[in-house]
Design a protein around this nucleic acid. Structure first.
Lengths: 355, 355
DNA sequence: TTTCTTTACGTAATCGATTACGCAGCAAGT
DNA sequence: ACTTGCTGCGTAATCGATTACGTAAAGAAA
């Protein structure tokens, strides 16, 4: 590799001069600057970013630590983050913790030792990583989920609100027997979903006997199994609507429904939580709550970039930015068959009374 | 940050001794090593990997440069690569070139200046990046596709073979009117697919009038549009089978078929190229050619790791590892309706002649 | 002419580790 | 007693940049 010194020798000046010339320091005469630039080009000199990083105390790396790459939630965020950061000369260093808090802490520790300039983090547990994440000395932005860590920015959707919203939507359709298939308890997002579910039950006076959350590991087999169990009970006790809180729950539901010949939404309504391009392709297309991946990622990236520009005026107070998702109503949801009958009856009954 | 020197001062020895003790150099007495370890722990010392990298001339970073994160082909590879490399203390630095050769070259150049230890690359054009990729001084492994670059390892599936394979499969079912919907020409994988398509036509005596490749940009709208065009022609001229060479082509097909009330495989057969978890969920499940993502990624990672261990004995000759995909037959394919009639007629005709 | 600025650069310290080299001090061999 | 060898560790160079500080020369001001 050609180094600064090689160029300096070729030109006949000191390394410092070359460094300054290439960095546009105006104290170097124009003629010499030109000469140095030419020589650097001729020799194919490119600055060693490692040395530069060590000296300048910044690397141009941004650690992005997410659960995994098998969920489009995270790949979407990663993709948009990468797109946003790349024009600023920032490179993404990837880390996947698979919802394992210990691994999460390890990865973050390792990235810190490697001196990433900032961290984007999808936290996996409620309390963040218990202080590991606090006071790292670099900007940290939680994305998607918000842990209870202090001192970190967050750009997120409150999944409790999201699920409440979905429950409200289903209740408005007439559903009162709702089951949510969700991931493992203890996972930040899952717990938020459960909270939203419980809150909705309370607020909308739904029955705890008729509504429940089924937790199962994030693979299609387990989700299918859980659903089969549900559907093996007498038809009367079936939920009229199912919330598939992640893509595997949705695909499991679609497959099980098909194998049992159940029709959506006539036999059962299905709502997803977080959108996937295939939901639209399904037959029928799946109604879902959509998280604003793109907007969140862009805002997170911009926040990050602003944090990285040392503006002495800005006291840089913590930013907590809450996004709301919205329901994309498609064809997998409708009023429950039973409710339809019931409500017709009730309306008739009411009319009778009124007469 | 606590540095080596801080620990040295605390213990009362030189920085060199601390470095040696922490790195397990046996020339340091056990008692002192123990003392140093304790003190380092007490102070929370963690080596600055930047400084270490500069001195040791290796960073522990592996650049992974792929087209994008919106195609599960690449996210799968990335995911498995990350899983494989992470236990070895190697971190993935992500780059996406979006099939833009200039951007590809830029990213790679930047990663080289940052001194990544190795590169995993999905090349986007035929000639690689014209010499940019050669002689980088670090191990380079092409994954998924193989360019014409010399001196780089490759772990790949020949998409020409893959498409030939699919064509053979369709021809065996009786199809002679086959259309492939593929991505932009000039993209390495797409061109390989076209070659395979052309080769199959020649080998199987298919008609150039009846079989063709429709290239369209990688978004669902354009694919749908292309397909609508196709289906707006008289039914007689419809292809009996369509190969959707990427996931967007498949989802476009499924949506258009549904909107037109066409039944798979009765009206038309559909085959995917590269698997996606949703193909199985679709109704009917989509037959597809599956690339062995996982195997390729694992082999690539292992090759990379072996390249990174300097074994002086090994002359380390170039490795070109060719994987084959296989067809996952599901329910979206079957014999063409016309062919069925036609072949009955032909058989009858042949029988008449024989009599 | 003298002093004061600029201008244009060089010298050397620095970032924080690793490591080549060398030098004590002690034991063992002759 | 004298060399030899080993153990244990310090000094300083090194990786390749950036940058604080100093200074020579040229020009301006007094």
């Amino acid at each position: 590799m050609t180094t600064l010194r090689d160029v300096a020798n070729a030109v006949g000046c000191s390394a410092a001069t070359v460094s300054r010339a290439l960095n546009g320091d105006t104290r170097i005469s124009k003629s010499r600057t030109l000469l140095i630039r030419e020589e650097a080009n001729r020799l194919g000199y490119q600055a060693n970013q490692l040395a530069r990083s060590l000296r300048k105390q910044k690397t141009g790396y941004v650690g992005v630590v997410i659960p995994n790459l098998t969920n489009n939630y995270y790949t979407n965020c990663l993709s948009h983050l990468s797109d946003q950061l790349s024009p600023h000369g920032l490179h993404v260093v990837l880390g996947c913790h698979n919802f394992d808090a210990a691994k999460d802490a390890n990865i973050i520790n390792s990235l810190i030792n490697r001196k990433v300039d900032a961290l984007v983090h999808v936290p996996c547990t409620k309390q963040g990583i218990d202080g590991v994440i606090d006071n790292l000395g670099i900007p940290v932005i939680e994305i998607g989920q918000r842990s209870s860590s202090a001192n970190v920015d967050a750009v997120y959707v409150d999944d409790a609100d999201g699920i409440s919203h979905v429950m409200q939507y289903l209740a408005d359709l007439g559903h009162r027997r709702i089951v949510m298939i969700a991931g493992r308890q203890g996972v930040l997002g899952v717990d938020a979903q459960s909270r939203g579910f419980a809150r909705a039950i309370a607020e909308m006076n739904l029955s705890l006997d008729e509504c429940k959350v089924v937790h199962c590991p994030a693979n299609r087999h387990d989700c299918s199994h859980a659903l089969e169990n549900l559907l093996d009970s007498p038809r009367d006790s079936w939920p009229t609507a199912i919330i598939g809180a992640h893509h595997l729950a949705i695909s499991a539901c679609l497959m099980v429904f098909r194998s049992r010949g159940l029709q959506l939404p006539n036999d059962i309504s299905l709502v997803g939580f977080s959108n996937d391009e295939w939901f639209e392709v399904s037959n029928p297309p799946v109604t879902t709550y959509e998280h604003p991946f793109r907007a969140m990622s862009i805002v997170a990236a911009q926040l990050l970039i602003s944090r990285l520009q040392p503006l002495p005026d800005q006291p840089s107070k913590r930013e907590i930015i809450n996004f709301d998702g919205k329901i994309l109503e498609r064809l997998s949801t409708g009023p429950p068959a039973i409710a339809k009958r019931k409500s017709t009856f009730e309306i008739g009954h009411a009319l009778n009374l009124a007469q």
